[in-house]
Design a protein around this nucleic acid. Sequence first.
DNA 1: GTCTATATTCAGATAGAC
DNA 2: GTCTATCTGAATATAGAC
Lengths: 184, 184
Amino acid sequence: MQHGYDAARMRSIAERAEINKGLLHYYFKSKEALLVEVFGETFSKLFLTIQNVTEEDGNLFDMIGKVVDVYIEFMMDNPQLPTFIIQELNRDPERHIQRMKKASFKFPFVGLDKAMNQAQEDGLVNPEVNSRHFILNLISMTLFPFVAAKMVGFMFKLNDKQYKQFLRERKKEITRTLIASIQA
Amino acid sequence: MQHGYDAARMRSIAERAEINKGLLHYYFKSKEALLVEVFGETFSKLFLTIQNVTEEDGNLFDMIGKVVDVYIEFMMDNPQLPTFIIQELNRDPERHIQRMKKASFKFPFVGLDKAMNQAQEDGLVNPEVNSRHFILNLISMTLFPFVAAKMVGFMFKLNDKQYKQFLRERKKEITRTLIASIQA
DNA sequence: GTCTATATTCAGATAGAC
DNA sequence: GTCTATCTGAATATAGAC
């Protein structure tokens, strides 16, 4: 996850696991097979985290804050995760998409989507708001600062500690932005 | 740019340039040296594009729409560019940051930052809005759909043509969202 | 400048002793 | 299951003819 598939070395992985290179192959057969395991686990973990939050509550405005909060906290615990997934999907898109279809992964934001429709029916949200763009805005503002951490840190001249603080501030910033953008 | 440094092959590059592998080394010495050229050009191109727009006009609200428009158009012409840059920065952060400092690259959104400060002084924009978060919101909503194109396309069940259309719609969506988020 | 042929290095993978 | 030693292939890089 740290280096991505192509730059990762079976030797380094074995070293870090404090086992032999041969043994690593004994357990996982090939580098590809190891990747499949790691990617599968990583991906489910991420999707399940989202799904849990969006299924809990019915109120859109509460849900937005919760999703952003959980999402950012999760990423701060696993900062290399989004980059890893994106890199992988770009490396071999067809393979991963086939695999996701097979595992019948479904859109993890269904709960949020439903809450949005309900709020629009109730007249609480601007009916012109498109829920796809809204959800993509949420994901973008949340994930991008992790994917591009190095660049953003450089642009804003923030060291690692300051960057973490910046990300914590971002929770309420993103929530505020999203809510302002859907006000009826 | 298509495959990233680690997965790119000197052989394939030579083939696509319709020259010999040896000749490729004759011109660029090493794979690393070739990367430095490509990354440098790519990076300047991107930054200059932004800088041009934010230097033109003084009015914040006009500028937001323009920046988003130019940014998205540019990315639609160079869709692999953001992924390439992000991948590279993650591959060898120190090296690239040193290089950027040396080339005295400066924050390309200064113009936008200034316009924001001015608008806040003039009482046109909510004084509590933090311009860093605002700018990062703009960048995130614009770039993320390119970086994660495969994943988003899969989630929303859009083929390539539909995805392009979706990105075009996004221009006004992003602009609308940003303006709503700073309203005084 | 441009090519062919070759050197070098190193990764992933396997064989086989224990 | 765990290790050492080895195989094989591939990728970058160089040497040298033309």
